[in-house]
Design a binder for these strands. Structure first.
Lengths: 156, 156
DNA sequence: CCCAATGTTCAGAATGTTCTAAACATTCGG
DNA sequence: CCGAATGTTTAGAACATTCTGAACATTGGG
């Protein structure tokens, strides 16, 4: 029974990390971040991560440099242990989504740059469609993020 | 002067493909798709793509299988030429965005699956935050796509 | 201070991805 | 039908990425 439980835990972890990868996180980050989310307690130590994910401590360091750099994770100390421990930070999903949406403005700008250069009617038409679409989503997603920020503040 | 123009064209093309890559298209698709958008006329032939992008015909075939599979591009024939020609299809940006957003529902589902399994308070709280965030964006983006579809229909 | 425990860096192994050349298949004009 | 032109498949080269072991650096208890 305990074995079933462990297997199910592993399956859930795999599925969650795979999902986060598909959404755009690098593999190492996704695996470690998932483990920290699913942790039973506050967080996990380096050696716990090494064992749970079957990776080297060098890989833990690498993943942590990314996760700490993106400010998704925090290091903390546990008294009686010399190991580093890590916990996920709260309220980080908003920034993650914002980063995801940022690419859209980039496409709009890129299409406008190309449009300024386009020298035939056919090319202009294709680029105008592209620019219009991305302008639309740029505006809409900016509004969505505004609504997100408001909702978020009320919750505090 | 013609050389300057060619260089600028190449720079614009590089920037556009890079942007499309960053938004999630695979590299090969992004390069070929950009070339077709920037084409002076209706589209480009296999040999024109090979020369413009300095890639082999095998790569053209590969990229086209992807682009045709995603229905972003159409094959057409030009009289007097035995080569295949390709043009971008119109009104495909909506579906591209929809596909981009689809991952969000996946994350929401994944977090709910994990939530059903979570056995401690700490894990439950982290997963609930995750699920709530993704539910919010799932709803909002579904609304955005509705507005997109309406706007789109009026335009026809 | 010292030393054991832990963390970081780095060179190279293992793995995965992308691209191409060449063989093969298909198409179409004659 | 034949043969030249074009398209597709495929095996492997070239390239990029990820992971690790080992050397090195750092930390903190005694």
């Amino acid at each position: 029974m305990s074995s079933d439980h462990a297997e199910r835990r592993a399956a859930i972890h795999d599925h969650l990390s795979l999902t986060l990868e598909q959404v755009g996180l690098p593999r190492a980050m996704a695996r470690v971040y998932s483990a920290l989310i699913l942790a039973e307690g506050e967080g996990l130590s380096t050696s716990e991560l090494m064992e749970a994910l079957d990776i080297s401590k060098a890989s833990v360091t690498n993943a942590m440099q990314l996760l700490l750099g993106f400010e998704l994770v925090q290091r903390y100390r546990v008294r009686g242990s010399r190991e580093a421990h890590y916990r996920v930070l709260k309220n980080k999903w908003g920034p993650i989504m914002a980063r995801k949406f940022a690419g859209i403005s980039q496409v709009r700008k890129s299409s406008e740059e190309a449009l300024a250069f386009a020298d035939t009617q056919a090319a202009r038409e294709r680029l105008e469609e592209m620019r219009d679409v991305y302008s639309f989503f740029e505006r809409e997603l900016s509004d969505v993020m505004d609504r997100w920020d408001n909702r978020h503040e009320e919750e505090r």
